[in-house]
Deep mutational scan, measured.
Amino acid sequence: MKVIFLKDVKGKGKKGEIKNVADGYANNFLFKQGLAIEATPANLKALE
């Protein structure tokens, strides 16, 4: 799953980066902790 990092995550990505991560990692950790959002077309456009 492609995500946009909202904060730096050690060993995974930095704020503003768009990366592929495992679905479970994104859903169970990144999204719940507010560290990333899904890289949907709307979210990508808002990032610009």
Rank of each mutant, 00 (worst) to 15 (best):
M1E: 03
M1L: 13
M1W: 04
K2I: 13
K2W: 15
V3M: 02
I4E: 01
I4H: 02
I4Q: 03
I4V: 11
I4M: 08
F5C: 06
F5N: 01
F5K: 00
F5V: 00
F5R: 00
L6W: 00
L6I: 11
K7R: 11
K7G: 07
K7V: 14
K7Y: 12
K7D: 07
K7T: 12
K7F: 12
D8N: 09
D8M: 04
D8W: 12
D8T: 11
D8K: 04
D8S: 10
V9T: 03
V9E: 02
V9D: 01
V9M: 06
V9R: 00
K10D: 12
K10W: 13
K10M: 12
K10T: 10
G11I: 01
G11Q: 05
K12Q: 15
K12D: 10
K12E: 14
G13T: 02
G13Y: 13
G13C: 06
G13W: 12
G13Q: 02
G13A: 09
G13R: 00
K14L: 09
K14Q: 09
K14A: 09
K14V: 08
K14T: 09
K14H: 11
K14Y: 12
K15H: 05
K15Q: 11
K15F: 06
K15L: 07
G16R: 04
G16P: 00
G16W: 09
E17V: 04
E17L: 01
E17P: 00
E17I: 02
I18M: 07
I18P: 01
K19F: 07
K19V: 14
N20W: 15
N20T: 15
N20A: 14
N20S: 13
V21R: 00
V21L: 05
V21C: 10
V21Y: 06
V21K: 03
A22D: 15
A22Y: 10
A22F: 10
A22P: 15
D23E: 15
D23T: 15
D23G: 13
G24M: 11
G24L: 13
G24R: 14
Y25I: 07
A26N: 06
A26Q: 05
A26C: 03
A26K: 04
A26V: 05
N27C: 11
N27W: 15
N27K: 15
N28H: 12
N28T: 10
N28L: 11
F29E: 08
L30T: 01
L30P: 02
F31D: 03
F31L: 12
F31I: 13
F31R: 00
F31Q: 04
F31Y: 06
F31H: 01
K32M: 12
K32A: 13
K32H: 09
K32T: 13
K32R: 11
K32V: 14
K32Y: 07
Q33G: 08
G34F: 09
G34E: 07
G34Q: 08
G34S: 06
G34I: 02
L35W: 12
L35T: 03
A36R: 00
A36N: 00
A36D: 02
A36Y: 02
A36F: 03
A36M: 03
A36S: 01
A36Q: 00
I37P: 00
I37W: 05
I37L: 05
E38Y: 05
A39P: 02
A39K: 01
A39Y: 12
T40L: 05
T40H: 05
T40F: 03
T40K: 05
T40S: 10
P41A: 13
P41M: 10
P41F: 10
P41T: 10
A42H: 10
A42Q: 11
N43S: 08
N43G: 05
N43K: 05
N43H: 08
N43R: 05
N43V: 11
N43F: 07
N43Y: 07
N43L: 10
N43P: 02
L44K: 05
L44D: 04
L44Y: 04
L44G: 03
L44E: 04
L44A: 06
K45L: 14
A46H: 12
A46N: 11
L47Q: 09
L47T: 08
L47K: 05
E48V: 14
E48T: 12
E48A: 13
